[in-house]
Design a protein around this nucleic acid. Structure first.
Lengths: 168, 168
DNA sequence: ATTTATTTTCACATTTTTTTGAAACTTCAG
DNA sequence: CTGAAGTTTCAAAAAAATGTGAAAATAAAT
């Protein structure tokens, strides 16, 4: 397979993969394009490469910057802005985990804490069931939170597999 | 907070949470409703409780059954079908992990394996960058795959926190 | 200060996803 | 068998998400 074809397929599949995980297709594609570009590229190049509008590129680029996955790059003597992606996949994974934890897991745990204690007859099966489910989801959430923290701190160890040995 | 109010909030938040993870809002809400119901319930009760159509309930219920999270229950003497959800949150998490791994992670790794070896000048920066990124994402994917397998096998240990001690 | 290049915003258009509801199908009781 | 109760399907409608493009804003050059 030739580079151009492989790139195309990587970008399009990465987009499809992203949608399954609640990530906007274009955002994932821009990220993929930046990942496989050896040099920083401009918004115009992204428009061209992905056949999308200027506005779309701009909005998704700033979103990616917000996730800490992409950086603006100033090239001396150039008027245009260039963009580049973090290329270390471990760091990419770490940033995504951190960010989703902050945006989703933490608020979820907060909500469950609020729902955990409800008024009413403790003998009521429905009350028991509710309390039990909310409590155990919260417990799972807290555990996931801690485990992810350890993984984040462990850095490349997880990536390279040395943590796996500890789990065996 | 009263049970009815807490239930409502749990169901609606669970739906919102689901959408962020690429899960259909209604499917997540039906799952939430079944989780907090001490007794099996019918499709009509779900329609009523969530104010959604019969078709919608039916399609999402079968999807949940497909994920192994919900079961049909036959109640002696009753003509209607009843449904119930797996209540053990560890098992729920395990099933979701297994299923997403199979549906998403495995195909992704397969794709990356195909893209890993491309024709062309090995000295070309673009070729190098592409190969490096695809290779490292594949490596991360394989690692995640193994780690998830260990977690799945470890069963409640992860949930109760004993694996965490091993990670420290 | 004015012109020109570039970036950003956002109302509206388009696409995608989800939901509805009525018809078709199935199952079971009489 | 027949018909009532229950379930499933799926074309069309509605809603939600995403994308467009041109105007406004910003920044740099002359």
């Amino acid at each position: 397979m030739k580079l151009a074809e492989a790139k195309q397929q990587f970008i399009s599949s990465w987009g499809a993969f992203g949608t399954q995980w609640g990530i906007n297709r274009t955002m994932a594609q821009i990220h993929a394009l930046l990942l496989v570009s050896a040099q920083p590229i401009t918004q115009d190049e992204m428009m061209e490469e992905l056949s999308i509008s200027r506005g779309n590129v701009n909005m998704n680029i700033r979103e990616l910057i917000g996730w800490g996955l992409v950086d603006r790059v100033i090239i001396a003597g150039e008027r245009k802005e260039y963009f580049t992606a973090e290329k270390d996949i471990w760091k990419v994974a770490t940033k995504i985990i951190k960010e989703r934890k902050k945006r989703e897991l933490d608020p979820m745990i907060k909500l469950l804490s609020q729902l955990e204690h409800i008024e009413g007859d403790k003998k009521d099966k429905e009350v028991q069931q509710f309390t039990q489910v909310v409590g155990s989801i919260k417990k799972l959430g807290l555990q996931a939170d801690k485990t992810l923290d350890v993984m984040i701190k462990a850095e490349e160890n997880w990536f390279t597999g040395s943590i796996l040995k500890m789990l065996k």
